Simulated scan of single mutants.
Amino acid sequence: MLPYQSLAEAEASIGRNLSAAENLWFWYSASMPDYILYYHNIAFLFLIFTLVPLPIAAAEILFPSALSPLKLQPKVRLPLSSFLKCYKDVFCVFFFVVGPLQLLSYPTIKMVGIRTGLPLPSPWEVGLQLLVYFLVEDYGNYWIHRAMHSQWGYEKIHHVHHEFTAPIGFAAPYAHWAEVLILGIPSFVGPALVPGHMITFWLWIALRQIEAIETHSGYDFPFSPTKLIPFYGGPEYHDYHHYVGGQSQSNFASVFTYCDYIYGTDKGYRYQKAHLAKLREQWKSDDQNGTDTSNLNGKLE
């Protein structure tokens, strides 16, 4: 809730005219308690989880051949029932775990200093804070994810997420409730270390979930803007992790690839990628020369 009774009072306190964005924020939040603003995250999480994976899921169910050239595991086709079960199970985790956690964590948000007032942060401030949040979360998530692939962690908790050996967007948050809670810790460390505005926090939660949905989409879109991000993993990188499954000791990173590279946990992926690239080049060469490629085709499959 803003401590101003009018726009004129807010402008007098700041010492300048409000920007268009600040006018909008004043209109929306002036009389709204801070905890209600924070609880917007519950709605954002649910809407993003419902809407962002929907177009690809609908296309895969209704027009499977249209996206086949871009599907990372083209032989795997999930029925509608699998999509619905995944959605239902994740919704239950949201309702019984994520929602209550959001309700209970508001005092912590206030304690670390996430603000709701004016002025709004500059785009540079928002961008730099988001970068810190992504880097901090990515590093913490790497080690937690790696620990989840220990025998105990996988058998007791993480195997649930790996039920989808060919991931889909709706399965990004599909996991054991304990894993959802544990992985929420590195997501909050960045905002706790570098607290910003509530709008920045909203963007962080939204972008992180959108990124996870894209990474689990099961499709490699060549013109995705995320391919321009340095060290970004993306769907192909994470799809390998799911394809190998519980035995995977590779590609633990959630967003970027630098931890896997530094700690040597991307060697299996890099070897397979190089090996398949050589096979494809040999296949093309033999095809041009009229050589039988059936054996190579079997290797690629």
Results as ranks from 00 to 15, higher is better:
S217M: 04
K88R: 15
A192Q: 06
H145P: 00
L45E: 10
D89N: 15
G113E: 02
K267Q: 12
H275A: 13
E214M: 15
G268E: 11
F252I: 00
H159G: 02
P123A: 06
A10K: 07
F44M: 12
D89M: 12
H216M: 01
S122L: 11
K156L: 11
E9R: 02
T116R: 07
V97M: 04
G117I: 03
T265N: 06
W202R: 10
Q282T: 13
H238V: 00
Y243V: 12
F96E: 10
K85W: 10
R270C: 05
R208D: 05
P74R: 11
F49P: 07
D220F: 13
A58H: 02
N289V: 08
Y38P: 05
S217Q: 05
A8G: 09
G246M: 01
I61Y: 15
L18C: 02
Q272P: 04
Q151H: 12
V90G: 05
P186T: 00
G233N: 01
W27P: 05
Y232N: 07
L84S: 08
H159W: 11
L24D: 08
A178R: 03
A66M: 12
S248I: 06
Y240C: 00
T293I: 10
A274N: 11
G184N: 12
M148V: 04
L130E: 01
R208V: 06
A57K: 01
E155M: 09
E236W: 11
H275V: 09
F26H: 05
P222S: 00
T293H: 06
G290N: 09
Q288M: 14
S6I: 00
K110V: 15
I168C: 09
D292R: 03
G140P: 07
Q288G: 13
P195E: 02
K273V: 07
T200S: 08
G290K: 09
L80Y: 09
G233R: 00
I182P: 07
L131P: 07
K278N: 13
L203K: 00
F26K: 05
S82L: 13
E163R: 15
E155L: 11
L130K: 01
A212Q: 05
